[in-house]
C-alpha cells in the first residue's frame, strides 16, 4: 500500500473512495479495459478505511465488504480471499457483514460460471476456486521455502 495513504484522514479517504467508485462503475459500464485498475484503486482506499475503522460500526463494516468486493471486481480473487479471511477473523464483525462477504463470493462465482460455462460444467472451475482459496492461506510456491 502506498505510504502516503497512511497520512490521510477518514474524511479524506471517504472522498477518494467516493470518486474512485464512481469512476470504476462508469468504466465498468463502458466495458473499458481500465476498469480493473479503477477497482484496484477502490480496493486500496477501502482496505485503508477498514484499517482505521472498527468492524462493528457501519462505516467499518462497509469498508471491509467494500475491500473484498472491489478486489473481486478487479479480478484479484486471491487478494479478495486474503482480505475476507482477515476480516472474518475479527470477532466483532456483525453477522450481516459476514453474510455480505459470503454473498460477494457467491455472486462472483455465479458471474464467472456464466462467463466460462464449460469450465464450470466440467468441475474444473470449482477445483480452481478451491486452489485459490487454499493458496490464500498458504501461498503457492514453485520451490520449497528454505527453513
Amino acid at each position: 500500500m502506498n505510504a502516503s495513504l497512511f497520512t490521510l484522514t477518514e474524511d479524506e479517504l471517504d472522498t477518494l473512495v467516493s470518486i474512485a467508485i464512481r469512476r470504476a462503475e462508469v468504466l465498468d459500464q463502458a466495458g473499458s479495459l481500465m476498469a480493473n485498475d479503477a477497482w484496484r484503486e477502490v480496493m486500496t482506499y477501502e482496505e485503508r478505511l477498514a484499517a482505521i475503522t472498527p468492524p462493528d460500526e457501519i462505516p467499518g463494516g462497509i469498508a471491509r465488504v467494500g475491500a473484498v468486493t472491489a478486489a473481486l471486481a478487479a479480478g484479484q480473487r486471491q487478494e479478495a480471499s486474503r482480505l475476507a479471511l482477515q476480516y472474518r477473523d475479527e470477532e466483532s464483525l456483525p453477522e450481516e457483514r459476514r453474510a455480505a462477504i459470503e454473498r460477494a463470493f457467491r455472486e462472483d462465482g455465479e458471474q464467472l460460471a456464466k462467463r466460462f460455462p464449460a469450465l464450470a460444467k466440467s468441475g474444473k472451475f470449482a477445483e480452481l476456486q478451491e486452489l485459490r482459496r487454499r493458496s490464500a492461506v498458504t501461498p503457492l510456491r514453485v520451490f520449497p521455502k528454505v527453513a
Partner: peptide, 21 residues
C-alpha cells in the same frame, strides 16, 4: 454525506448524523 457506496450494498450513498446512519 459520509461516502458513496458500491452497487452491491444496494444503495447509492451513506449519510450520517448524531450516530445515526
Amino acid at each position: 454525506v459520509k461516502r458513496r457506496l458500491q452497487q452491491r450494498e444496494g444503495a447509492d450513498w451513506l449519510l450520517g448524523k448524531e450516530r445515526r446512519w
